[in-house]
């Protein structure tokens, strides 16, 4: 379905419920749960970026985590140099956006097919991993920020009240910032999907050739969707770096790049709520299993992924929605049948 957003009832309910939850949760949970939820929020923003570019525009970007990492590094370097988080947040979104615009121009205007887009975005991420890993020498500095190779950039300044670096966010404030950021990104993407641009990218996912035959320059629309997704992923990286107060090249690793793909697939491709759900389930599960050390985390995650690919290929949200629709249709047919037989 093509998404629509005028601020409709459903959206209003989502916003209201989410706001209430965000305000209540810190009063209910201990600090470790709050920190875990904050991490989940930042990962969910990354998942939403992939959900948008892959689930709606039909572009399988295997390297979506690259923009997340670039956003994180850009935030860290700017915050260390300027000592204020406001321009650092702008840089954390702007740098991956510009990088995606340049990279995407060559990818989409060269009319690379889907499989090559997936491969080249993955290769880009792995190149960034290698490059950032070899920046341990003191020569690799951005102003006062030392990139630090595989050790990364430590002691990244947290988000502060604009112009007042001494008034910075603690874990509770960071929870609210991350939570409301996720909500804002969700509303923004829902809004975009309801615009003409959103409808065009969905059309492109469904039938790119027909879109061209109607007069749409699909190269341009793909590039725009890719750039929007990169900006969102970069913002996720900013939130993540704030949560961690640290960023290192592991965000460019193959294992990290694969994670959002699994979150999106399990939650449900072609939805926005599904990938958030998938992120929360898998990220929390990874943490719990890691703490208990009873089972190998990767082994169990692999098994869950295989289970979903084979038995629930559409993911949680679309499967539940189909079940409900089918039940509704069956009930409606039953009612019609009863009415007819009575008639």
């Amino acid at each position: 379905m093509i998404g629509r957003l005028s601020i409709d009832g459903q959206m209003l309910a989502v916003v209201t419920l989410s706001t209430i939850l965000l305000l209540i949760l810190p009063q209910v949970f201990e600090i470790d749960t709050i920190l875990q939820l904050t991490l989940n929020f930042s990962f969910s923003i990354l998942a939403l970026s992939l959900a948008f570019v892959w689930g709606y525009a039909g572009i399988f970007s295997f390297g979506q985590a690259a923009f997340f990492g670039i956003g994180g590094y850009a935030y860290a370097a700017t915050a260390i140099n300027l000592g204020d988080s406001t321009p650092a947040i702008v840089a954390g979104v702007l740098v991956p956006t510009l990088f995606a615009a340049l990279f995407g121009y060559f990818v989409f205007y060269a009319r690379l097919t889907k499989i090559y887009v997936a491969v080249i975005t993955l290769v880009m991420t792995l190149i960034l991993y290698k490059f950032m890993g070899q920046t341990a020498k003191p020569d690799y500095m951005i102003g006062n920020a030392r990139l630090g190779g595989y050790n990364g950039i430590p002691a990244v300044p947290p988000i502060n009240v604009p112009g007042q670096p001494h008034l910075f966010a603690g874990p509770d404030e960071m929870f609210y910032i991350a939570g409301f950021s996720l909500l804002a990104v969700y509303v923004l993407l829902r809004w975009i999907l309801g615009t003409r641009f959103g409808k065009v990218i969905i059309g492109m996912r469904e039938n790119e050739k027909r879109m061209e035959l109607l007069g749409f320059d699909t190269r341009l629309y793909k590039l725009l969707a890719f750039v929007v997704a990169a900006a969102v992923a970069g913002f996720g990286g900013v939130v993540f770096t704030n949560w961690n107060a640290f960023i290192d090249p592991h965000v460019f690793q193959l294992a990290f790049s694969a994670q959002p793909i699994i979150w999106v697939m399990i939650g449900g491709l072609g939805t926005l709520a599904g990938p958030i759900l998938g992120t929360f389930i898998l990220s929390t599960l990874s943490l719990e299993l890691g703490v208990q050390k009873a089972l190998d985390v990767n082994l169990l995650l692999g098994a869950i992924f295989t289970f979903f690919v084979l038995l629930v290929p559409q993911g949680i949200i679309p499967t539940v929605r189909n079940l409900l629709e089918n039940r509704e249709a069956a009930a409606s047919n039953k009612t019609d049948g009863t009415t007819e037989s009575r008639g």
């Binding site: 093509i2 969905i202 996912r205 469904e206 039938n207 027909r210 879109m211 061209e212 035959l213 109607l214």
Partner: peptide
Amino acid sequence: THEMARLGVGIKTQVPSVFDGLTVHE
């Protein structure tokens, strides 16, 4: 292709080229 379409050339292909996952209205 898209420039040709913008000039005013439309085509109905041999195998229907439509948006399968969308409704008629969409």
